[in-house]
Each structure stands twice: as structure tokens, then as C-alpha cells.
Design a protein around this nucleic acid. Structure first.
Lengths: 345, 345
DNA sequence: TTGTATGCGTTATCAT
DNA sequence: ATGATAACGCATACAA
């Protein structure tokens, strides 16, 4: 229609810098494309270039505010690079992970972001090669995959130090179960223990762990765990602060405490991890730790885009040092109450 | 490697029913494929078949529990059909919607599910054809697109009738702004008004609408709106029940009321819409309306799969009548308090 | 039951 | 600066 060849059209529409055309030709082609509502066929393009501009995101479920937040960030980052996000909910089932790995492979996706610990790292590496995969989570060298680190240990330490500085001495840590696949829960606890030990208060820490991982993956499970563990914790112990292993568990704690008519933070402090948006919406606003997830997600996406792609300067950008977790103090934590509550100690 | 032709391999690997092979040949091919870790190239396949087994989901943001729930259901439904979900967050920006429509088109996606009212229905229809699009939301014949209906009007009526049955007469309805693009808020209100009118209590309804739509799309905005509108509502009016335009707004109302030390539901009832999982986790569990979204989402996905696809029986299944909204009574609503609160009336 | 040949729409190579 | 042509990997019409 523009009276030129396929080649010319391709070169112009992809506005490549290595060739140059007279403005007149360029306009003719652009005009014709516009008139025809031309949209390049991504199948044909992918067949040649082996690139899809698609990134798969593997996570257990989107019904959990943490993963929802993460997915939101990934979506924003991929869109920024003109990429599209494929959502893959595995419910932590190996079978579902395998299903999605197959679906994504065949050079179909340019890369895969794991937001949980891979069940089948070998299969993933075999299908994509390690350089097309990024794991967002606590570093695990055994996996042999690129990793954007979350440093849960440091996060745990930050929270505990915050409470110690406020004068709390007897502290409860409540958590959903330590399972094989979520080492971050354990690492948060270890960070808390480390801080308590540094303060010489190691034996003042009370740890309560939930019983069974429940099949359902929405946040209600964690809220329930937080509620019942706090009930048990306060029945047996005189703590002045409760640390939930994440914000949802902390909300459960808050629910129970509110119901007992104890005042927060005057009589008891509560805090969590993750800085999900509810932690700054529900009242009281809760003290938590921000992972700077947005920055980290962007880094992960850049790593894949650089590797899949046009390389060069992009690749350099991917080498940045990720930032560490930061404490976000809010209304739910305050100075430890006076001796009254310390009578057992 | 199996000593047979491409054709044979293709036929066997796609296990087509219209041809039949001796078991020996079949095994040879399957064996070879397994050994080679063969994964079909989806680009090449798509180039021939014009099918991607990809469905685009267009929504404003995933940082809002309603859309998060919807996305979860869509993901489950698409996975069930061996499809993959492309997540497209538009933040209700026309520009972003256009970006995604282009990205998805070129026969790249088999269909598009709109979870919000399309900004550019014409462009969408032009790129995909109306039969490849399904809108999940209140029916809007003007769009000329297939629609899975949510019936917000009926939902509003259900809630109001529930309160009327409990003896409430003076009721507040609080809502984020009625904007051009979310007619469901207005329809919920109209349903409430209809029920009040049927009871002859039309003038006992107090409506409070938030000021400006805020740019940020996480639920915190709606919680804040609920909080401040309830404050204003209770300062000026003696209502015995508050209806939030959705569960998040209702949570905001709950937050304010809890802080005033009024008892729920003894002194005041609160309810919302959508049945997001938080409504059954946070305490008190709130009365709400369930849209039976899961069923509706499955229907929407089936409609696209049937149209894109292998047709026949699938297409028939897509004709089902969608179910209506149902009331979910929980702890936050109870009988209207005795006359004490009714002195103004 | 199985093989041969063709084409999907694009980009890349090599001409001119 | 631009055009001709091949090739990507698969599915299919047709032949055998």
C-alpha cells in the first residue's frame, strides 16, 4: 500500500537506528500502517526473534495481601518495559508449578519471576536456563538461581530492636507454622532472637507457632492464627509486646486484644512485617517493616529484560545493590508500660 | 528420532481423535518426545492456529480486594481450561487501556475480560471483535458487548430489605463518589432507595457521598472515605444502620464506630457489598452481599474459550443464566435498638 | 496409517 | 536506501 517492500516496512516500523530513511518514505509507511490499523503479529515476530515480551510470575495465590502487593509492583514494572505479565497461581502445589512451567516454556515467556521458593528448580532451570529466572525472597544459594534478596533476618532484628528501645523486655512472637517452603518465617524469628540475645533478654522471648498450614490461601487463615495464638499467649504470659510474623497475623492479634479492652499501645504493643496497605488503613495503624519491595521487583524485572533482550546498558543497571528492609513505626507500638505488668518476671 | 514424519508426530502429540495409530508408533513418538524434553513452540503453533490460549484481564488495579478476588477467580478458571491469564492494570487510564489493547491484539490473546467499564469499547471491538470480549459488571446494552451481569440494583435492595426486616427505619448510605465510570455504586444506592420506598420509608434514608476520587487505587482510600463519612453521618443524623457502598467503605465505618465505643450491632448495624475475604476475617464479621463472582467469572471464561475454540458443547454451556446476588448476614447487623435512638424522628 | 509439501507473518541476510 | 528471498516450527491438505 505504501508502495515499498516488506523489508522497508519492517525496518521503519521498528524504527531501527542502524539504517536511515528519507522522511518521505517513513511518512508513507507510517501513514499506511495507521490507515490499515496494522498490528504486528506477535506469533510471527516471536517465531523469528524468540522473544515474547512476556514474563511469568509464579506465586502461591493472589488472595494474600503480600502477594497481591508484589503482583501489583511486578505488573507496573513489566508494563514500564512494554512487557506483559502472566499470572501463575500455584497454591504451592508442585503439580501446578509444573503445569505453569510447561505453559511458559517453549520460549514462550522471556523470563520467570518466582515469588516463592521453587519446588522444581531443576525443571525450571532446564526449561529456561538459570539466567531467565529470578527468585524474590530470602537468599538461598543452593538453588543456583539469580535472587533478589529480602533479608528477613534483618527485618526481624529491626522490629525487635525497636521494641527493646521502647523498653519492652518480655515479648511474644506469634507465627503461622514453620514449613519447609517458607524459610522467611523462621528467619524473621531468628532475627528477633538475635536482637533479644544482643540485649541479654533472650529468655524473655515467648514463641507461639500455629498448628497446621491450612489449605485455603486467603489471608483469613493468618488472621485467625493471629487471633488464637494471641489468646493463648496472653493467657499464659505477661508480655508487653506481640510481634506477628506478618501484618495479617498482627491484625489477628489486634482483633483479639481490642476485644479484651486492653489499650494499644498503652498496655500492649503490636507489630508485624510486610507493610501491606491495610497496615496503614485499618486502625490503629500498625508498626511494620517495609521490604522496599517495589525497588526489588523493579530490579528483578530489569534483570530479566536485560537478559532476554536488547542487553547492554540495561544489563549494567541490573547490578545494583538492593536496599535493605526499613522499620515503619506507627500507632500500634509505644513505650513499655510500667512495672505493673511485669510482676511475673 | 522416532523414525517417523513431522505429520505423524504432530498428530500423535496433539492426540487427535480423527486419526488412529498403532500403539507401537504412538509409544515411539511419545518416548522420543519425552527424551528430548520436547515442548511445542507456541509461536509457530499460534502462527498456524491463530490461538494463543491467553486471556487478557483488564482491571483498574489489583490492590483492591474486590479486583484481587476477581483476578484470583479468573486465574483459577483460565488454568482449568489450560489457558493463561494476562494481567492488565489500567488504573482507569484510557492511555493504559489503549496500550494493553494493542499489546493483547494481533490475535495475541484469545479474548479479553473487562472487569471495569471499557473506556474504549470501539477500539476493543475493532481489534478483537465483540465475540472475543466479555464485560463483567452491571449490564450496559450501549456497549454492544457480551456481558456477565452483576445486578447491583438487586444487591442494594437485598441489603436494605435485610435492615428493614430487622426493624431499622432510619438508615445511612455512605459511598465513594458517583463517577462516570462506576455505575455500580449508583445502582446499589438505587436498589436501597427502591427498598426504602417499598417500605414507605424513602425519606428516612440519608446519603453521604465522598468528595473526590483519589488517584491512588489501593483500598486505603475507601477505608478513609468510610471513616470520615460515618463521622459526618453520625454527627448530623440519628441512624441505626450504616450501609457502605462496598466492604472496604464499611470497614472504615466500623473503624470510626469502634472508636466511639458504640456497640455493634446492639446500638448500630453496619453492612457492605462484595463479600471480600476480609469481611469474614476481621471482627466483627460483617454482613454483606455476595455476587457469586466465582460462578460468573467461570461463565465469562467459558464464553471466551468456547468462542475462541473448539466450540460445540462448550458454546452451549456458555448460555447459562447467571445467578443473582445473595445476602450474607453476619455479626455486624442486628435488630434495631429501641426508641431511645429514635427520639429525633 | 503415514509422508510430502505448503504457508502462516515476521525479521535477517544478502543483494543491488 | 531499498528489495528479494530464506527461514523460524508448526499444522494441515493432500497424496500415497
Amino acid at each position: 500500500m505504501a508502495g515499498v517492500s516488506q523489508t522497508t516496512v519492517s525496518l521503519i516500523l521498528n524504527n531501527r537506528t542502524d539504517v536511515t530513511f528519507p522522511e518521505s518514505t517513513r511518512q508513507k509507511v507510517l501513514e499506511a500502517a495507521r490507515k490499515l490499523n496494522y498490528v504486528p503479529n506477535q506469533f510471527a515476530r516471536g517465531l523469528k526473534t524468540k522473544r515474547s515480551r512476556l514474563i511469568g510470575l509464579i506465586l502461591p495465590t493472589i488472595s494474600n495481601p503480600y502477594y497481591q502487593m508484589l503482583a501489583q509492583y511486578v505488573e507496573e514494572a513489566t508494563a514500564h518495559y512494554g512487557y506483559n505479565l502472566l499470572l501463575c497461581n500455584t497454591s504451592r502445589l508442585a503439580e501446578r508449578e509444573a503445569f505453569y512451567l510447561n505453559l511458559l516454556s517453549g520460549k514462550f515467556a522471556d523470563g520467570v519471576i518466582y515469588a516463592l521458593e521453587p519446588f522444581m528448580p531443576e525443571k525450571a532451570k532446564q526449561l529456561f536456563g538459570p539466567e531467565r529466572i529470578v527468585v524474590i525472597g530470602d537468599a538461598n544459594p543452593e538453588l543456583g538461581m539469580p535472587n533478589v534478596s529480602l533479608n528477613s533476618f534483618q527485618a526481624g532484628r529491626l522490629v525487635a530492636r525497636h521494641l527493646l528501645e521502647l523498653g519492652h523486655e518480655r515479648i511474644g512472637f506469634i507465627t503461622s507454622p514453620f514449613t519447609g517452603y517458607t524459610s522467611s518465617r523462621r528467619k524473621r524469628m531468628e532475627g528477633v532472637i538475635a536482637a533479644m540475645r544482643e540485649a541479654g533478654l533472650e529468655h524473655q522471648l515467648v514463641i507461639k507457632e500455629g498448628e497446621h498450614e491450612r489449605e485455603n490461601f486467603d489471608g483469613s487463615y493468618e488472621i485467625d492464627i493471629g487471633f488464637s495464638l494471641t489468646e493463648a499467649l496472653l493467657r499464659e504470659n505477661e508480655v508487653t509486646a506481640v510481634i506477628g510474623v506478618n501484618d495479617m497475623v498482627a491484625f489477628g492479634a489486634l482483633s483479639y486484644i481490642t476485644r479484651t479492652n486492653m489499650r494499644i499501645p498503652d498496655e500492649i504493643s503490636v507489630c508485624g512485617f510486610d507493610n501491606i496497605y491495610l497496615s496503614r488503613s485499618l486502625r490503629p495503624h500498625i508498626t511494620t517493616v517495609d521490604h522496599q519491595l517495589n525497588e526489588k521487583v523493579r530490579l528483578a524485572v530489569r534483570m530479566i529484560v536485560a537478559n532476554a533482550g536488547d542487553g547492554g546498558d540495561e544489563a549494567a543497571a541490573a547490578e545494583e545493590e538492593p536496599k535493605g528492609p526499613v522499620l515503619v513505626p506507627r500507632d500500634s507500638t509505644g513505650p513499655a508500660p510500667a512495672k505493673r505488668s511485669m510482676r511475673i518476671v
